[in-house]
Design a protein around this nucleic acid. Sequence first.
DNA 1: AAGAGTCTCAACCGCGCAGCA
DNA 2: TTGCTGCGCGGTTGAGACTCT
Length: 264
Amino acid sequence: MCLFSKQEKGDDDTNRSKKGPWSFDEDEKLRTYVSQYGEGSWDEVQKKVGLFRCGKSCRLRWLNHLHPSLKKGSITEEEGRKIVELHAKIESKWSQMVKELPGRTDNEIKNFWNIRARKLKKANLPLYDQIIKPRDLSNQEQVDISQVKKSDIHGYKFEQLPNSFNVSITSPHVSNMQCNNVASTSINNNNTSPTLTNNSGLLESMFFTPKILEDSDANHMHSTETKLVDENGKKPISLEKDESNHEDLIDLMFGLGWLDNYIF
DNA sequence: AAGAGTCTCAACCGCGCAGCA
DNA sequence: TTGCTGCGCGGTTGAGACTCT
């Protein structure tokens, strides 16, 4: 156990198993132990190299921080995707997930998932989002919606297009993803042919599921505010449109070729 | 500028299992 | 069979960093 033993209780700190953050010297002692005696027998560390940490703590420190095969840096997009897939299959079997994610620890995976789950819960979003991968928008300077074939839009009916329809994707910060630019688009239908323009931008990939978080007052221009959030729930993707189903937006974007695919 | 609130992640805790005497 | 020890797993905590107001 990692608790102070009864006979140690009341002794000065040097006789106890220390707790809290590890110092550089402690890390060095643990490295020395492993290089000389190998991994395992963690309770021997205190005797062999004079490191006043319990065996459990030593094992954890070695496996989670000092092991040479560990990857540095935060979870990548690909790894995040893998974790979501694995969680959908095996739930919180972190140690099994480690086998699929070499260089990552169960603790890292668990933290990633817990943070993600908390954000999604806060945003009232499902744990297993659609993963939507937009295409490179950089070459699409302007699109006239009226020129888009109806059949391309997967059931979207043009006559349902709201009078005012704005989509703005602002600073879609998604950690560990290559979002080099900001994609910003707007769709307007001011009793003329609806046009769609987008600023130059490249949004490589992102996770989001549209979710209506708040309905504004019905008298307030009959509008419903729908907030989209990135996978981290950090940067909202704002959407203001009439009360038509938000899924229309996804259909529309898909039909316009902005989205490559949906992955479930 | 500063205090409050939120987020992140390293570390801890309790439990269960396997091996052994 | 029982008790002990070492180890591994998954859940939780809390200090420090960061962001917001």
